[in-house]
Design a protein around this nucleic acid. Structure first.
Lengths: 123, 123
DNA sequence: CCGGATCCGGTCTGATACTG
DNA sequence: CAGTATCAGACCGGATCCGG
């Protein structure tokens, strides 16, 4: 709390780097899209929509826009006749790899297989 | 029993470890609570509620229950009359540290300053 | 068919108020 | 202090629709 103004209430979340990251990728779908793009070779809208997790297309559309404007994906038209697009990871996207790797490690080492029943009922 | 309905209703998308982790901690608040508990010394309900991010108390209550039943926190009564509780990180919680560290690193290195307004409006 | 956009019911969030 | 109750409104997710 150094010499700052008195109005610092607005956008308080952005002061903490963990918060900023969560604001960007801390929702149910965004990191799954990045996982597909970075590790599973997903590129097209259909690739992402057709994954195991069945993200609704409207949400997918929103998340792709967000990721493009955040600079994590770039939209590239690779075919003209009928227009076809692919969403390619940017160099910045690579910086998410440690995060995804940490998530994978936690899930694999500590949430292996079945989830305890008491948790299932809680979720 | 519950004041708020459940967060990610039903199914753990259990096939992918990244998904399982996201189902557990991939929401707006859970990792912030764990950050407070692991790194900022937060212990009591009031500690978490009084942080910079102003989590609503009903959500805090839900998230604490979830974290306790997931084995990441344990609820300990440290005073009897009046009853006072603290939420202490378990050994399992330590396994989240690399994840939080990865989030902090990404936010610090690549989301410096503020998130663009156009993005904030979508969050 | 592909890449979305739109519509709509239901669910969750979050501010406030309230209780022990 | 440690939560619970309430409630409007935002958001999600399923279905459907549409242009190319």
């Amino acid at each position: 709390m150094e010499s700052v103004n008195h109005i610092s209430d607005v956008n308080f979340r952005s002061e903490c780097p963990v918060c900023r990251t969560l604001d960007l990728v801390g929702d149910k779908w965004t990191l799954l899209i990045m996982r597909d793009a970075l590790f599973l070779g997903g590129k097209t809208f259909a690739d992402f929509a057709g994954g195991n997790e069945k993200i609704p297309t409207n949400l997918l559309s929103d998340r792709l826009k967000k990721l493009v404007s955040a600079g994590l994906l770039r939209k590239h038209q690779y075919h003209d006749k009928p227009p076809r697009y692919e969403y390619l990871p940017t160099p910045l996207a690579d910086e998410l790899k440690p995060l995804l790797e940490a998530m994978r490690a936690f899930g694999e080492n500590h949430l292996e297989g079945r989830i305890p029943d008491e948790l299932l009922s809680q979720l």
